[in-house]
Simulated scan of single mutants.
Amino acid sequence: MPDQPPILSNVPDSFPWGVLTRRHPDLIATVRRLVPYPPEVQGALDELRDMDTIPPLPAGARDRAAWQVWSAAYVGQKWLDVPFLWAESYFYRLLLEATGYFGSGPWAGVDPFAPQKSAELDSPDLARDLENLGDLVGAPEQDGLSAALTAALWGNRADLGFRMSDPSAQDRSQVDDLVADDSAELWRLLDGGTENRVHLVADNAGRELVADLVLIDRLLETGRAATVVLHLKPQPYYVSDATVTDLLQVLRRLEAAGGAACGIAGRLGTAIGDGRVRVRAHAFWCTPLTFHEMPSDLVAELGGASVVVVKGDLNYRRLVGDAHWEPTTTFRDLTAYFPAPLVALRTLKSDVAVGVDPDRLAHLEATTPGWRTDGTHAVIHVRP
Rank of each mutant, 00 (worst) to 15 (best):
L268R: 09
Q142W: 05
W17H: 14
M294F: 04
G312R: 08
R157C: 00
A353Y: 02
Y337H: 02
L334V: 08
A340R: 02
V198H: 02
L314C: 02
V19F: 00
R172F: 06
H381R: 00
L94P: 10
P339D: 00
L190N: 06
R224M: 07
V343G: 06
W107E: 13
A336F: 00
L232M: 11
G109D: 12
T53S: 11
S173R: 15
V19N: 00
D46A: 13
A265R: 11
E195V: 00
W371H: 09
T328D: 04
V352W: 00
Y237M: 13
E195K: 02
G76F: 07
G43R: 15
H231E: 10
P339T: 01
L298V: 10
A366C: 05
P36R: 03
T329K: 08
Y92M: 01
I54P: 06
A323S: 11
D13F: 09
T21Q: 09
V239T: 15
I54Y: 05
V239W: 02
P39E: 09
D374N: 15
E221L: 14
A305E: 03
A256Q: 15
D246P: 08
S146I: 10
G18T: 07
E97A: 10
A353C: 05
V175R: 12
Q174R: 12
N315V: 06
L364E: 07
D177H: 15
L130M: 12
S9L: 07
Y237P: 09
A362H: 12
T222F: 02
D212G: 03
R252A: 15
W107L: 14
G269V: 02
A127M: 08
A87S: 13
R278G: 07
A225C: 06
G60V: 06
V201K: 01
L220Y: 09
V198C: 04
R172T: 14
A127H: 12
S306E: 01
D135L: 11
L96H: 14
R383T: 06
V210H: 06
G60A: 08
A265H: 08
A61D: 10
V244P: 01
A180Q: 13
V35H: 04
R32W: 01
V307N: 03
A225Y: 07
R278H: 03
R93N: 07
G269A: 05
S168G: 13
A44F: 08
T373P: 11
A283K: 06
W285T: 07
S118A: 15
P295H: 04
L319Y: 04
P295T: 08
L230S: 10
Q249A: 15
D191Y: 02
L248A: 12
E221H: 10
V379N: 13
Y37T: 05
